[in-house]
Design a protein around this nucleic acid. Structure first.
Length: 212
DNA sequence: ACATTAAGTGATT
DNA sequence: AATCACTTAATGT
């Protein structure tokens, strides 16, 4: 079955018996780029495990403004689900597929049992929470202690690394959304960076230079 | 050629 | 740094 092959990614993390259970209970789901898995305020009764692709987790304010919190990569799960959805609290974040994504959904009911029954599951849960928390702290750090310039530079570098290319294919608008600001501001900052020979601007594309 | 979307910019708060 | 209003440039049909 398709699910079983994808579970390979979890093989090093979870015991075989557990993997079988996941394959048995889990519901396979595919998201297209831009599809929304969880919206703010929604109560999710399922735990997502990302098999392939990338989920973008954002905070949305009442005006619909977004702020990028972190990404959920392949072989990971959303830490928020473990914490808030276990107790049936509504989600405080939004999860959107950054690219076409395949995932397995597990009912939250299994949590209690699995936590005691499978040490690897407990370790996995703890690990993802710890890692997410770390990522979140990095984001808070950026927001709290750095101005927009350095946040923008940091953001571009991360994108560059993620795509392993000095070319970043994003519009100013998209960047502004991720950083929770307006397009005009991003355009101005980018222009300044271009004048300083830190990067080159094209339509829907930015080339980062060594000087950055 | 025309419409649409992205990016650049001055002025204002 | 945000918003407005407007211009210019690139792209799609």
């Amino acid at each position: 079955m398709e699910v079983t092959q994808h579970l390979e990614k979890f093989k090093s993390l979870l015991e075989p018996e557990l993997l079988e259970k996941i394959a048995g209970i889990g519901v396979f789901k595919e998201l297209k780029e831009g599809d929304i898995l969880i919206e703010t305020g929604q109560t999710l009764r399922l735990i997502p495990l990302v098999l392939e692709g990338l989920l973008k987790i954002t905070r949305t304010d009442e005006n619909g403004k977004e702020l990028l919190l972190y990404y959920v990569n392949e072989g990971e799960s959303c830490a928020m689900t473990f914490t808030c959805c276990m107790e049936h609290y509504p989600s405080e974040i939004q999860a959107m597929a950054e690219e076409d994504t395949k995932l397995i959904l597990l009912p939250i009911g299994i949590m209690d049992e699995w936590m005691v029954k499978y040490p690897t599951w407990k370790a996995f849960v703890m690990k993802t929470i710890r890692y997410r928390f770390h990522e979140l702290l990095k984001t808070i750090d950026q927001v709290a202690f750095h101005n927009l310039d350095s946040r923008l530079i940091h953001y571009l570098k991360e994108k560059s690394v993620a795509g392993s290319s000095s070319l970043v294919n994003l519009s100013h608008e998209q960047i502004a959304n991720d950083l929770g600001t307006s397009r005009v501001v991003i355009s101005r900052l980018l222009k300044k960076l271009e004048n300083d020979n830190k990067l080159l601007l094209y339509r829907n594309q930015i080339k980062l230079l060594q000087a950055l």
